[in-house]
Simulated scan of single mutants.
Amino acid sequence: MNDLDQALVARLVPDNVAGLLKELPSLPSRQAVLLGWATPIPLLVEMDELAEEHRPQSSDPDFWDVWTGKSPRVIDWPTLVQDWTGEPPAQP
């Protein structure tokens, strides 16, 4: 959860649960804090797994495996530079 998202959520929740907001970035995937009229106290809930055909076409990056070298991380630098700059890659 990025800083802008956290600031938005902080404006939407009551002051007495503001301390819970510090925990939001560390929640695992599919977990959330349920607040509001639906529950008398904040609850930690886990969302059901979506069927494959309903999932977003993205996944969490596997930072640990890349960090430890278990999985290679191939980077297409020329394409990345072109995407960022809008310029074609320099020819050698």
Rank of each mutant, 00 (worst) to 15 (best):
L4A: 09
L8D: 02
A10R: 08
R11W: 02
L12M: 07
L12R: 07
V13A: 08
P14E: 12
N16D: 11
V17G: 05
V17P: 01
A18F: 01
G19C: 01
L20F: 11
L20C: 08
L21Y: 03
K22T: 15
P25I: 08
P28T: 14
P28S: 14
S29A: 12
S29K: 04
R30Y: 03
R30G: 06
Q31G: 05
V33Y: 09
L35C: 09
G36R: 10
G36I: 12
W37N: 14
T39W: 00
T39L: 03
I41D: 11
L44Q: 11
E46W: 01
M47D: 14
D48K: 13
E49L: 12
E49C: 07
A51P: 05
A51T: 15
E53M: 07
H54S: 11
P56E: 15
P56S: 14
Q57M: 05
Q57Y: 02
Q57F: 02
Q57W: 01
S58N: 08
D60E: 13
P61S: 09
D62T: 05
W64I: 08
D65T: 13
V66W: 04
W67A: 13
T68S: 07
G69T: 04
G69N: 02
K70S: 01
K70D: 00
P72Y: 01
P72L: 04
V74T: 15
V74F: 06
V74L: 13
I75W: 04
D76W: 07
P78G: 07
T79P: 00
T79E: 12
T79L: 14
L80H: 04
L80R: 09
Q82A: 15
E87P: 00
P88T: 15
P88W: 05
P88K: 15
P88V: 15
